[in-house]
């Protein structure tokens, strides 16, 4: 736990400036968007942009957090620490979530204020719980995706010295595609096994993020707790596999 905390702090310190800058950019975008809502399409575009931009940021940053260590050779220092590979990757995933939380915070607060204004004060009493729960659930999905991206990145890095850069890049794409397919299948399967667990009421909002079959656009009144647990389990499996690849196959 101590090493996990140290590595987490190192990750946060290393990316402190970028995180603050990201927060400032999202906050500025939301403020400008809110101020120019009556001038379409820019106002709406700026307000909706984080909804698409932040997931892309998660994916790009997760890839970057692995490749950065290899590109700037800091992987030599990192891998010479008396720390298990699982701890290194878990610290990276937790730091990524924290940074994602910070960067998305201005958007989440901004959207809540806009919903509240648009609904004449009805939104908050009725949807506070659902809104917060949906936000937390996106973080759970981001955690699983971080594990998958780490696995794909490290699989690519393991292939590059043996078969070249192109083979490494193809390997990354293949692991990502297979991982997403597996995640959708396994989440549905695990959710069925865990269906004896109680469901979390959602009131329809936010259920587009998660469903019993993984990603689905169908709205539903409740989210099975088993689905959430399934995402956590998959995140753990992806991180563990990534750690195995790092320990046995990846070269610095």
């Amino acid at each position: 736990m101590r090493n996990l905390g140290l590595l987490y702090r190192k990750e946060m310190r290393e990316n402190l400036v970028a995180s603050l800058l990201g927060m400032a950019v999202v906050a500025a975008g939301m403020a400008i968007g809110a101020a120019s809502l009556n001038r379409p399409p820019w106002g709406v575009f700026l307000i909706v942009m984080p909804l698409y931009g932040i997931p892309i940021w998660y994916l790009a940053t997760a890839f970057g957090s692995i490749h950065h260590e290899w590109n700037q050779h800091t992987a030599y220092w990192l891998l010479s620490l008396p720390v298990r590979e699982e701890t290194i990757l878990l610290a990276k995933a937790l730091a990524l979530l924290t940074r994602g939380f910070l960067i998305s915070l201005p958007a989440v607060v901004g959207w809540a204020i806009l919903f509240e204004r648009a609904s004449d004060g009805v939104f908050f009493p009725r949807f506070t719980y659902t809104y917060l729960l949906s936000y937390l659930l996106t973080l759970v999905v981001a955690f699983m995706l971080a594990g998958l991206v780490f696995l794909a990145s490290l699989s690519g890095l393991a292939v590059i010295p043996r078969a070249g850069r192109l083979a490494g890049q193809l390997m990354q794409v293949a692991v990502m595609v297979a991982g997403v397919w597996l995640a959708v299948r396994l989440t549905g399967w695990l959710a069925k096994i865990l269906d004896f667990l109680p469901s979390l009421p959602l009131l329809g909002l936010g259920s587009y993020v998660l469903g019993p079959q993984g990603f689905t656009l169908a709205t539903q009144p409740a989210l099975p707790a088993g689905t959430v647990i399934a995402f956590f389990l998959l995140a753990a499996v992806f991180l563990w596999l990534a750690a195995l690849v790092l320990r046995f196959w990846v070269e610095v």
Partner: peptide
């Protein structure tokens, strides 16, 4: 492995320091 790394000090040929940190960090 992790247990031998606790007793081995390794200095690679490449520059393995974090550029965003200070010397004392």
């Amino acid at each position: 492995g992790p247990s031998t790394r606790a007793r081995v000090a390794y200095v690679p040929e490449v520059d393995c320091l974090y550029p965003s940190l200070r010397v004392e960090e």
